[in-house]
Amino acid sequence: MTARDIVLGRIRAALADVPDDESPADVPVPRDYLRSHAGPDVVALFAERVADYQARVVRTEASGAPAEIARMLTERGVTDLVVPPGFPEELLPAGPWNRLDDHGPLGVAELDAADGVLSTAAVAIAVTGTIVLDAGPGQGRRALTLLPDYHLCVVRADQIVGDVPEALALLDPVRPLTFVSGPSATSDIELDRVEGVHGPRTLDVLVVDRDQPQEVG
């Protein structure tokens, strides 16, 4: 008998009280919880909740995004900047940074030595202040947004949903997913929260709104 047979056999024996004709759907699961705890302004809520984690949040209109990114990179003193494949070129500002593309691919030492990474996100969650990465365009493989000590994540306002259930419904579980809520942190010392351990110690989030049409007359 294989271990598989043994374990499955034990489970079936242990569940002797479950009627043979019971199916999983026969065990009721009440789903009367809310789909979202967010109010109407999910973008403002998202900004507020991300900031609660000691991350910086900046809002800008699309046309102002490259300048905003340039300003943040400069402020954080970034020179070697990882830019994942598929990052929208129109958002990328000119500047004194040395752009690292993952064509090689980049080795762990190079990523570790980089000053920062500039990425997009797949979805963002307002109530929990979470950005979700799914290794899609502009995000790249997981190591790119992990090893550099600074992460600047660009989120389009229309990517922000209210709450966790709405976000999960938009995600594809087959892709590697990383939910990021603030910079890395630990509460392991006297349950006192300290930001900044192994993951990026600094997280900036740039929320990009669509340009407002110019009002006429």
Binding site: R141, R142, P176, T178, S181
Partner: peptide, 21 residues
């Protein structure tokens, strides 16, 4: 658990992804 709205990181993976991880 930690009394946070969400913990800093949650990772999910499904089997093996070519070129990533």
């Amino acid at each position: 658990s930690t009394g946070e709205r969400m913990n800093p990181y949650t990772s999910m993976w499904t089997g093996v992804t070519g070129g990533d991880g």
